[in-house]
Simulated scan of single mutants.
Amino acid sequence: MAAALAAGPGRPAPALKARRRRQALVTLAFLAPWLIGFAVFFAYPLLSTVYFSFMKYDGFRPPVFTGAANWRYVFAHYPLFWPALRNTLWLVAVMVSARVVFGLGVGLLITKIKTGAGFFRTAFYLPYLAPPVAATMAFAFLLNPGTGPVNHLLGDLGLPQPGWFNDPSWSKPALTMLALWGIGDLMVIFMAALLDVPKEQYEAAELDGAGPWQRFRYVTLPVISPIVLFAVVTGVIQTMQYYTQPIVAGKVASGIIGNSGQAFEPGYPDHSTLTLPQLVYNLGFQRFDTGSACVIALVLFAIAMAFTALLMRRRGGLFQAGE
């Protein structure tokens, strides 16, 4: 008490200041692993990417400052940037939406199955475990317009036979079908969320005369909305990094895969499967234009952050309109 009075009004006692300092140091010690990881694996790479975006650098000679030359080249003179941007945004809008709706539908369906639910859970989850390269190659052979069994079956049924990965208008829908085939991750997440919805709320809604759609709209969706938001945000981030499947599908469809020594420009057919991550690899590791690759990487980062911020800002009203 005497030490506190001696410190004067509004001024903490030395013992209190020392205790706060110790608490701050303990907190910092617990945060240190995360802070170190954040600095090494996020802050430093991000700042380096910004730095090299203003440099001419091929990975061998010292970087040379060129101002905004790389930015002007990518946005005004690089012919593949805008097709890749359009394809990436198309995949974000269509593929993410389709995966969320399909994953939620499959999860809802399996939770309603009384017998054989374990079999269907396993059957829908197993494709997710397939390696992306193997799964894409299998899909490319199944959807081969000339020899694939899918088009043979469609022909036997008298239906149109698309070109799939060999047709610019069908290549992105074919990639979306591949993404829906590996829906097991979202199915499991949505099943866990659906099983966590209180049954009392369903019973109360049913007593009030709510039908199946009303119960889903006003009971299920509000409860699982955080999980839906999580699925959308992570889906957007993953799709902004979409690289393996489109480039493997393009190689298989063009006949390049398996033939060593052949040059391959990503995006077959007609740049319809070209994505921004492919441009980052092509510019940075095949053409050794690190500065332009960093520009596209920063564009990817900015778009992903913008989508995430928009979704997080609107999270409270995603499923409330019309109530």
Score class of each variant (00 low, 15 high):
P277F: 02
L153H: 06
T66G: 07
G261S: 10
P162L: 03
D289S: 07
P14I: 00
F264M: 06
L46N: 03
D156Q: 10
A6Y: 07
V236H: 04
V219D: 05
I224R: 12
L221C: 03
A193S: 14
P14F: 14
A210T: 07
Y73A: 13
R19P: 09
Q214I: 04
P131D: 14
L157T: 08
D167I: 06
M95V: 08
L109P: 04
G322E: 13
A93Q: 06
A297N: 12
R313T: 12
G163H: 06
P222W: 00
M305K: 04
T111F: 09
A193H: 12
R86N: 08
T176F: 03
V106H: 01
F139M: 15
L28C: 10
L46F: 14
P149C: 04
W90M: 05
V96E: 00
K172C: 05
K17T: 11
N151Q: 05
F230T: 00
T220S: 10
A18W: 14
F216C: 08
G182T: 15
A293P: 05
A297Q: 05
V96I: 05
W71A: 01
I247S: 11
L28N: 08
N87T: 07
M177Q: 07
A3F: 13
Q262T: 07
M137K: 02
T308V: 13
D167E: 15
Q245F: 09
M95F: 01
V133M: 04
T275A: 02
W71E: 00
Y218A: 02
M305W: 10
P212I: 00
F120I: 14
F120M: 13
F75C: 06
A3H: 14
T308W: 13
R11M: 14
P79S: 07
F65M: 05
F319N: 01
N282I: 02
G155Q: 12
L31G: 03
S260F: 10
A123H: 07
F319Q: 00
A304P: 12
L195F: 00
L47T: 10
H77N: 11
Q161A: 11
Q161D: 09
Y44H: 09
I303V: 15
A174W: 03
P131K: 00
G103M: 03
F139P: 12
G158T: 06
F319W: 06
L276A: 04
S53T: 02
E265C: 03
P246G: 04
G146A: 11
F264D: 02
A15V: 03
S48A: 15
F230I: 00
W213M: 09
Q262K: 10
L85Y: 12
V188G: 06
Q320E: 12
P132A: 15
Y268I: 01
P198A: 09
V150M: 11
A193R: 01
G250Q: 09
A192Y: 08
